[in-house]
Amino acid sequence: MTLGAGRQQRIATLLRERREGVLDHWVAAVLNTVRGRTTQAELRGQLAELYELVVQAMGEEDGTAAGELSAALQELSRTRARQGFSPSETAVSVFGLKDAVLHEIEAGGGTGVVVYREFASFSKDIDDLGLLTFETYARTREQVIADQAEQLLELSTPVVKLWEGIVGVPLVGTLDSARTQVVMESLLQTLVDTGSEHAVIDITGVPAVDTEVAQHLLKTVVAARLMGAECVISGIRPQIAQTIVALGIEFGDIVTKATLADALAYALERSGVRVGAG
C-alpha cells in the first residue's frame, strides 16, 4: 500500500510543516483514552515514530515506508491487545490523527474544496490503517484466548494419588473431546509412572456428556485395561445416566459407583487394603 499516491500534496505539506501542532493534538486525543496506562512522553514517542512513517509514506514511490508503517502499527496493536486495551482504545491511536489534521486545516483557515477533497482521501487511507490495527488486535486477542484455554486445560485435568496404587481424576466442568483426550493420556501415563493398578474417574462435577465424550471415557477404561489397570467411574449424575442409556452407549462391565468415596472403598478392597470403622 502507498499513502496518498501524490494526490494529497497539501496534506503532506501540512504534515511536514505543522508537525508539532498536529502531533500535539494527536497525542492529546489518544492520551484521553489511555490515561494512566502509559505516560505522555512514552505515548508521544510512539506516535512521533508513526508520524514520521506516515510522512515518509506519503512522499515515497516504492512503498518501503508504508511497509514499515504497517509493521509498526501491527506491533503497537499487538502490544495494546496484550496489555488489555479495548478495541476502540487501540483504534483511536490511529483515528486520532484525522482529527488532529482536520483541526490544523481549520486552524490554518483552510478553506476551499481542494483541501477537503484531499482530506477525504487522506481520511480513507487512515481508515485502512485503522482496519489493519483492528485485525491485528482481533488476531492477538484470539491467540491470547487460545493460550489461556490451553493453560486451563492443563490446570483442569489433575491426576492425583488417592492411595498407594490408586490414582484419581476429579473432572470438573464441561468435557469436550480435546479435554477428555488430554485426561485420558495423562491418566494412563500416571498409572505407569506410579505403578498404580487402580484408577477412579470422578465425574461428579461434570454437568453433561455427549456421545463423543462418553466414548472417550469408555476408551480410557479399555486402554487402562490393556495396560493391566482397572478404572472405576464415580459420580454419574442422574441426567448423565439417562443420556448414556438414551444414546445407547454400552458401559458393559465397567464398574461405576455413586460417589468418589464408594469408588475409593471399592478400589481399596480390590487392591487388598482393608478399611474398617475403628
Binding site: 485420558m184 494412563l188 505407569v192 479399555v222 486402554a223 490393556l226 495396560m227 493391566g228
Partner: peptide, 19 residues
Amino acid sequence: VVGMRPAVAITLVELGLSL
C-alpha cells in the same frame, strides 16, 4: 502381556483391537 505403553494402548483401542 506386561508393560504396554499408554500410547500403544490408546492406539489399539482406537484401531478397534481388543486383544
